[in-house]
Amino acid sequence: MKSFDYTITDEAGIHARPAGLLVKEAKKYQSKIVVKMGSKAAEATKLMAIMGMGVKKGDTVTVEAEGGDEDVAVNGMKAFFENNF
């Protein structure tokens, strides 16, 4: 399993539309990708669960990838977070 931490800098946090893009990105990989924050966790392919976490600016999330392409997945997701959040 690979993972990285990321602190949200976008004013809006993980809002509806970027959350939708996040789901699209996560679906590109075979690995199971999970977003965690404190006691909350959601699979990155599940839009409403991701939105339901209510991630705001300044929050730090941990993104984990586990599976055959976990190296590629974690790099891809990291780049995605940096560009969008």
Partner: peptide, 16 residues
């Protein structure tokens, strides 16, 4: 218009 795109994505949500 983005709101309608979000609606489409929500409708594809696996949990839902």
């Amino acid at each position: 218009a983005a709101i309608f795109e979000v609606h489409q994505m929500m409708m594809e949500d696996e949990d839902y």
